[in-house]
Write a protein that binds this DNA or RNA. Sequence first.
DNA 1: GTCTATAACTAGATAGAC
DNA 2: GTCTATCTAGTTATAGAC
Lengths: 212, 212
Amino acid sequence: MSDNEDAAERIRKAAIALFKTHGYHATPVRALAEVAKIEAGSLYYHFPSKQEILFDNFVRTMDMLLEGLARAVETESTPRRRLRVAVRNHVLFHTRRQDEAFISHTEIRALSEQNRREILAKRDLYEERFCELLRAGVEAGVFHIPDVRLTNIAILTMCSGVADWFLHDGRLDEESVAERYVEMVERLVGYSRSTESSDRKRLPARRRKARR
Amino acid sequence: MSDNEDAAERIRKAAIALFKTHGYHATPVRALAEVAKIEAGSLYYHFPSKQEILFDNFVRTMDMLLEGLARAVETESTPRRRLRVAVRNHVLFHTRRQDEAFISHTEIRALSEQNRREILAKRDLYEERFCELLRAGVEAGVFHIPDVRLTNIAILTMCSGVADWFLHDGRLDEESVAERYVEMVERLVGYSRSTESSDRKRLPARRRKARR
DNA sequence: GTCTATAACTAGATAGAC
DNA sequence: GTCTATCTAGTTATAGAC
């Protein structure tokens, strides 16, 4: 955190670090001020309240996610490729903006009711757009999903979970993790190149008979 | 919450409800006392501190999870069946003990350092025992997993996520959700009855060639 | 085992000088 | 735009009566 940044940005970064480690309610404004190298009173020149600092982080995080998803859909044309890019994007966001994403998981309850409504609307929009990617693949016959809504939420929680455990100097770098998650998602959606070959692989009639 | 329960139990249940809704730090002891139908001072006869009430919830939750996993492994013999029962057990725990499980996700940071160490040790133990189920299947040739540790964490976060969204009067009842999650996990581990048939399905030499 | 009263402290936010 | 000083309210926990 450079000292030359403007104060608002230093406060934002202090909030990300402290809310992630201790949580919103366990972080006094005085602690935010100390990390941001400012006095507590001065902080209120840049933000009207502690709540607004948290809300600011939520808005930025959700908007980045939504923009990333929109880009992913634009740049690819087939359902499979769109899903692959969307998942890669989602996972990389949760490694690159790990702390912000983590706060967005854990501190929704700390938002005021009005702010929470606004953020949940953005989250619902993201989930719905992601779900559309799955439905498109099912309708094209390349994904085979018994319950699209359930698989959608399972995929998103699985991928968002990366923010909980990823270590930047760990065994796998972020690109490797993203690749593996793309592979796992393709298993979850039962990807196959065409309906016929997939049906042969997923539900072979002969094998079914042999089971009894 | 019955008024006839002993006070300690009423305090536990009040804590589960309030910590889930507002979080640990946003829940005053006076609020716990009010919901437990007791005065704030009386609460300290049953628990030495607010922290101890939170820790109590963590210990109970983790111990229930560990016991459930041990039972799952005992009652089944094949890798596939063990995994199926373990996943079903895990998901049903996160619907039946939804609030406790949710708190265990979101409030780890609120534990004192010593308490947190103790709980993380239990969590690591659970993850390691779960991972063993995957390894057993890989060694038996019935699971096909590129990175067992990664798939393990992906499965567990996916299944634990049920506590975040499950509604007891929602579209799917808990048994249906558990069944579908078992199916999804089987896709993730690349289950197949024997090594040969699975290798044919997953990495067909001809298709690989045709790709270039 | 539960109560009332309160100690000791910390919280978020504001006022006004510079 | 940043500072110091402070207001008001709320916090966990304890003391001692019953």
